[in-house]
Amino acid sequence: MALRVTFVAAARSSSLLAERFQDDRPLDQAGWDEVQRSAWDLMSLAAADLRYCSPTPRSRATGDALGFAPLVQPALRDCDMGRWRGLTLGEAMACEPAAVDAWLADPRATPHGGESLLSFISRVGNWLETRPLEDGCRVVAVAEPSVIRAALVYALKAPPATYWSIDVRPLSTTTVTGLGGRWNLRFDAASALTSRA
């Protein structure tokens, strides 16, 4: 039995240079335009057996605009950034440079008073491990880029520091297949998105 989970990165709500921790802003016009341009390529994912999304406004809006009608999953929420919520990395660094350095260096650190990177990766990984098992089951999840990075670190059993080296672009897709702690990263041709693994 194998499960196939395809993550779709939410469309953007701001310039990529102005990404904010736990960004709850809705899609901006550029984000809506990106969804419209990508809809044809991604609409086949609506045939997934199960469709989920992060609770952020842009993840929900992206999933709805693509015709997924996704079910909100609290476990796919962004990392709890405590008092840094709503700040950019640059703004947090300007206010608390030593705290940001500690957070970037230690996956167990919580200088912001929120969730550690390690806890975040574990939470997203636990969600991945608890998906219903049916042979060939296809799942699609629209999520924030940070959530997808956490899922990939978990699935590949990579060191937590790998999280900082993964770049997830808006509306990109990433697929993992497997179950029970054994996951594989899968690269699909666009025409193969609708076929069962």
Rank of each mutant, 00 (worst) to 15 (best):
R77F: 02
I148Q: 00
G90Q: 05
N126V: 14
F187T: 13
C137P: 02
W40R: 12
L27H: 02
P132A: 08
T88M: 07
L45I: 06
E144V: 06
R58C: 03
A39K: 15
D24A: 14
R83H: 13
P145C: 07
R83T: 12
L156R: 07
D23L: 08
R123A: 02
L104I: 05
T194R: 14
A197H: 10
L17T: 12
R149F: 08
W84L: 08
M93V: 15
S54Q: 12
L118I: 10
V8L: 09
L45T: 06
A69M: 10
E19K: 06
A192S: 13
I148T: 01
R108I: 10
G86C: 06
S119K: 05
L117W: 08
E34S: 10
L76P: 00
L3D: 02
T177I: 07
I166D: 00
P26S: 05
I166V: 07
T173M: 02
A65F: 06
T6D: 09
L117M: 11
D80T: 12
R196H: 15
Y154N: 07
V176G: 03
G113N: 02
P160V: 11
A141C: 05
L3S: 08
A39H: 14
R58E: 05
G86V: 05
G67C: 11
V140K: 03
S146F: 05
L89P: 08
G113Q: 00
R182S: 14
Y52F: 14
V142P: 02
L89V: 13
T6F: 06
D101T: 05
D24N: 12
L76Q: 01
A99R: 02
T62D: 11
A94G: 08
G136D: 09
A190M: 11
P159C: 11
P26F: 02
S122R: 14
Q22F: 04
A65N: 11
F7L: 02
A151T: 03
R60F: 04
A192T: 08
L118T: 06
L16R: 11
R182T: 11
A94K: 13
G180K: 02
G113P: 01
A143W: 10
A2T: 14
T88P: 03
W103F: 15
A2M: 14
D33M: 09
L117D: 06
S15Y: 01
S13Q: 07
S116W: 14
R196T: 15
A141L: 04
D101A: 14
A150L: 08
A150K: 15
A39G: 07
S116Q: 12
V140P: 04
T175S: 10
P74M: 02
A18C: 08
M81P: 03
L179D: 12
W183K: 00
D41W: 01
M1W: 11
A161H: 13
S191P: 05
G181R: 00
A143V: 10
A192R: 15
I148C: 00
G90C: 01
M43K: 07
L50T: 13
D49M: 04
L66Y: 04
A47L: 01
R138A: 10
L193F: 15
W40M: 04
G178M: 06
A18G: 09
L133K: 05
W127Y: 15
K157N: 10
A155R: 03
A158R: 05
D101Q: 12
T173R: 11
L45G: 14
I121S: 03
I166P: 01
S122C: 10
